[in-house]
Design a protein around this nucleic acid. Structure first.
Length: 212
DNA sequence: TATGCGATATTCT
DNA sequence: GAATATCGCATAG
């Protein structure tokens, strides 16, 4: 299957999905953030399957002052310290869940924030969960992504490389060029270019200059 | 299109 | 009591 990054039309037939094995995931946080662009996030629950293509990520590597684990482990951060390929989900701003993919070795608190998806399957259920139907905005931004996929604290700690309610799949078609920028919405280490996205993809969040 | 602001829950100081 | 890896609405241009 071939597809342009700026094509907003729905994909007719769901592409076959192959689950990613942990061994395929880069260990290093920044490598993983780049690697995940173009891969698929799959959600399966009682309402069926929803999936989306990852088009934007941010790396929060070990020692980064804006990373949650910077001040050491706390109970809430437990899953952030899991072996790579697990979900770290937390709630913030009184309104939004954030979904991260853990990175590095077990015992190291680091991860990759999933910031935006290009919706593929289960779009009606995403619309239902989001309470709006503009396809471009369904999963554009980390809080929206979690809402569209029905991700909440119950997903915290889930193994994304195993069959279950939430998992990762290989890219169904070649991705476009990857862009790189500073991260969005942080107050420390603001100059590190640790945000990655598919260039020109209309489902990427952030101001225009950060999408080209 | 761009910017500003309030809402709201949880965690850590 | 402060801060927060945000969102959606309001208002202005």
């Amino acid at each position: 299957m071939k597809r342009r990054p700026d094509d907003p039309t729905p994909v007719d037939a769901a592409p076959p999905l192959r689950r990613l094995r942990r061994a395929e995931l880069p260990v290093a946080t920044i490598s993983l953030a780049r690697y995940l662009i173009g891969k698929i996030l799959v959600r399966e629950d009682s309402s069926g399957r929803a999936s989306g293509r990852i088009v934007e990520t941010e790396a929060y590597p070990p020692g980064d002052a804006s990373g949650h684990a910077f001040r050491g482990p706390t109970p809430r951060l437990r899953s952030l310290y899991l072996e790579r390929g697990h979900a770290y989900v937390y709630f913030t701003y009184g309104s939004s869940y954030m979904c991260n993919v853990t990175s590095e070795a077990a015992g190291v608190g680091a991860g990759v924030l999933l910031r935006a998806l290009e919706p593929l399957e289960g779009i009606p259920s995403m619309i239902r969960r989001r309470g709006m139907s503009r396809r471009l905005d369904l999963a554009r931004g980390p809080g929206r992504l979690a809402a569209a996929m029905g991700i909440d604290r119950r997903c915290d700690g889930v193994d994304l490389c195993a069959a279950g309610e939430l998992w990762l799949a290989a890219a169904p078609w070649p991705r476009g060029a990857i862009g790189r920028s500073v991260r969005i919405g942080i107050t420390r280490e603001v100059d590190r270019p640790l945000r990655f996205y598919e260039r020109g993809n209309l489902f990427v969040s952030g101001p225009r200059p950060l999408r080209t």
